[in-house]
Nucleic acid binder design. Structure first.
Length: 711
DNA sequence: TGACAGTTCAT
DNA sequence: TGAACTGTC
């Protein structure tokens, strides 16, 4: 044991000992105290769901075990204020240094900045590291030194950076423990009695913990990766990497995954194995999307609750809690959607393709507000991840520049080939011959035939449809009565009729979109006239509250011991999932968060430590520095007036640059505090979608500074 | 080789 | 829908 002068390593979502830069730096510095602080109330409405807490519990136990074998252990603290608890740990152990790895969700950005400030003020040396990304968000910029606004451009840049992502670090061989005799652990409670039964099933399918994650990675790289491109569209999870929950909790290093996959790619390229090469590209792209979600979150910290494209704030979402309930329960009448929702409920897992199916349906057919769907995913997914889920839902909702176009449920295809007008098959013609119908085409749900061609997935999760022939499995509403009878199905009775017809959905979508554009135009006109500043802003920027039935579903059963601030979905058929507290005062909370975050972004990192280590530490000089509006391209005529005005009033900022390994780390001065985010102009339009070309007035990302003023 | 139709797939 | 790709003449 070493006495004072030890280092505290603050573990969060980096629950591994391998390639953990904060841990490695602490080990090099001498005595180490490892701490995990459980303060879920700090997450506000994003209190972790049942399955997510289950994972965390086991991952922490696993980490503790590894640390014990290396010579120390994991101190756990229950808290409602992470920073205060952190300070207590530092004081009680006599530590002089704090090390942690970066997170990029809005709450962590604020919290970590505060931790740096508070501890630095106490004379503690604070250093933070990149353990979660290939490249830090502020290192990936376009030729104007602005952040990218489309994935393709972003990822293209990542793959052509002048320096490779850091090679993964080996686990420490031994850790000298700091003095924790005056720093006892709290017992952390991650599940209540009622949840234990459901959670027990999870252990059959999943093994949390960093070394299990490492095994999963190796298994995937040496096995399913080869056929990843061929298999990836199938609905069952057997061919995906299954790494996402491990990645969420930082049990596996994304850099290790990247380097291992790249090595395979080189190997397969030498063997002229085209499919293998393509598989690696696709796998790396999915890693890239995860990177991009952090990038978006860092550059637009409101992206989990506001559309990034301004005009979408005028979209009249359908506020229908019965639709929402039917979707959650898997009773929409669309078999693939229902199968997916039931799998999600039962297992906490969904194949990526099915996530796209159920969320597209949610947004485009039911036209429910995407944040409701995102919140439900948050509560139920094993790999719930705020940044990735926000990006996914914004993509599906068409609220990011390269997202799915919203105005495309039109004829006759629903984007993504989900609905297609197809000729009747031979069998169908035959079966319809007896009737007098002259129909020769029909709508089917085409996506179903792509990712579940034989209907096995649907039959697995919807046993009531098990006897329906494959021909009709994805569109039972088209099946002849005789077929339904033979399969024991009575639509509207033991399986629902579609709750919304596709034609009705298309009609409503068109009406809603024209309403949206009208409001958008009116708002813009008002702003340009200077009469009514931001007409419509008052409603636009207030997120639609989560549904009452979630909010009001208090759990009244006294025997249950829910974590504070949780609610239940009582209407679900499967018992015992908890959902997080829905904010009662949504508006205030958002505003507070935004202001806090803005404050964070407006300041220079207070990284006062002189770097002694050669490489990775240098990367951290610019940690959580603010934005780069000093490098914005000239205001574009196509961009709304209010932006031009803001640009003209924006303070110019100065920056200095430091050389690092051929790269450059920006260090921003306090004068770069004004934040004005906008899209580049046409000349900057790498990957600009046709949608935006058709609607240049919408070619802007919602300005977050204005939001915080008007929200 | 090149024009053209059919196809596939979107981050 | 439309860009990129495939196959045919």
């Amino acid at each position: 044991m070493s006495g004072g002068g030890c280092s505290v390593v603050w573990f969060r979502r980096d629950l591994r000992v391998e390639d953990n830069p904060a841990l490695a730096a602490a080990v090099r510095a001498g005595g180490v105290v490892c701490v995990f602080i459980w303060a879920p109330e700090e997450e506000g409405p994003y209190y972790p769901g049942r399955v997510s807490r289950w994972w965390l519990k086991h991952s922490l136990a696993h980490l503790d075990c590894s640390l014990k074998s290396l010579g120390t252990s994991l101190i756990t603290k229950r808290s409602t204020d992470s920073v205060s608890s952190l300070l207590e740990v530092v004081v009680s152990t006599g530590a002089t240094q704090l090390f942690f790895n970066h997170l990029y969700d809005p709450i962590s950005l604020v919290r970590d900045h505060r931790a740096k400030e508070v501890l630095t003020a106490q004379g503690i040396a604070v250093r933070s590291f990149n353990a979660d990304l290939l490249y830090e968000p502020w290192d990936v910029n376009d030729v104007h030194d602005c952040p990218f606004t489309t994935f393709d451009a972003f990822w293209g840049r990542c793959l052509s950076m002048p320096y490779d992502p850091d090679a993964p670090l080996l686990p420490p061989k031994r850790i000298i423990s700091g003095d924790v005799s005056r720093c006892p652990s709290d017992t952390l409670v991650f599940e209540d009695e009622s949840e234990k039964g459901s959670n027990a099933l999870l252990a059959r399918a999943w093994s949390p913990g960093w070394s299990n994650a490492d095994k999963a990675l190796t298994t995937f790289i040496n096995g399913p990766l080869l056929d990843y491109s061929y298999n990836r569209r199938k609905a069952d999870g057997a061919t995906t990497s299954l790494l996402s929950p491990h990645l969420h909790f930082g049990e596996v290093s994304v850099r290790k995954a990247f380097h291992l996959a790249r090595m395979k790619q080189v190997l397969w390229a030498n063997e002229s194995n085209k499919a293998g090469e393509e598989s690696v590209n696709l796998f790396l792209k999915s890693i890239g999307l995860r990177e991009y979600s952090r990038y978006i979150s860092f550059n637009h910290p409101y992206s989990h609750e506001r559309p990034l494209l301004g005009h979408l704030k005028f979209f009249p979402w359908v506020i229908n809690q019965n639709y929402f309930k039917a979707w959650r329960q898997g009773r929409t009448g669309y078999p693939l959607v229902d199968a997916g929702m039931r799998e999600l409920w039962a297992t906490g897992w969904l194949h990526d393709r099915i996530r796209v199916v159920v969320s597209s349906f949610f947004v485009k057919v039911l036209q429910l507000p995407w944040r409701w769907g995102m919140k439900y995913f948050w509560d139920t997914l094993l790999d719930a991840d705020l940044e990735s889920d926000a990006l996914g839902w914004q993509y599906i909702s068409g609220t990011i520049p390269d997202g799915r176009e919203f105005d495309r449920i039109d004829n006759p295809q629903f984007r993504g080939n989900s609905f297609a007008l197809v000729p009747l098959s031979h069998d169908e013609r035959k079966s319809l011959k007896e009737s007098t119908s002259v129909v020769t085409t029909r709508f089917i749900w085409f996506e179903g035939y792509k990712c579940d061609p034989n209907g096995e997935y649907v039959r697995k999760w919807l046993p009531e449809l098990a006897r329906l022939p494959t021909e009709w499995i994805h569109h039972p509403w088209n099946a002849p009565e005789s077929v339904l009878q033979a399969a024991g199905i009575e639509l509207g009775s033991n399986y629902p009729l579609p709750i919304v017809g596709i034609d009705a959905a298309k009609t409503r979508l068109q009406e809603a979109l024209s309403e949206m554009w009208q409001h958008e135009a009116a708002s813009r006109a008002a702003v340009e006239n200077g009469t009514e500043e931001g007409l419509g802003d008052s409603s636009e920027s207030v997120p639609i509250a989560f549904p009452q039935d979630i909010q009001m579903e208090e759990n009244n059963e006294p025997a249950r011991n829910n974590p504070p601030g949780t609610r239940r979905y009582e209407d679900q058929m499967v018992p015992s999932i908890t959902t997080s507290l829905v904010r009662a005062e949504e508006e205030e909370t958002s505003l507070e968060l935004q202001n806090l975050t803005e404050e964070t972004r407006a300041e220079v990192p207070t990284d006062l430590i002189v770097n002694q280590e050669p490489r990775r530490d240098m990367l951290n000089q610019g940690v959580f520095q603010t934005t780069r509006n000093n490098a914005l391209p000239p205001p574009n005529a196509a961009i709304g007036m209010q932006h031009a005005v803001e640009d003209s009033t924006a303070e110019s900022s100065s920056s200095t640059r430091r050389e690092r390994d051929g790269g450059v780390v920006p260090v921003w001065s306090p004068s770069s505090s004004s934040y004005s985010e906008q899209f580049g102009s046409e000349d900057n339009s790498i990957g600009t979608s046709s949608y935006l070309q058709r609607h240049p007035q919408s070619h802007q990302i919602m300005n977050w500074r204005r939001l915080s003023q008007t929200g």
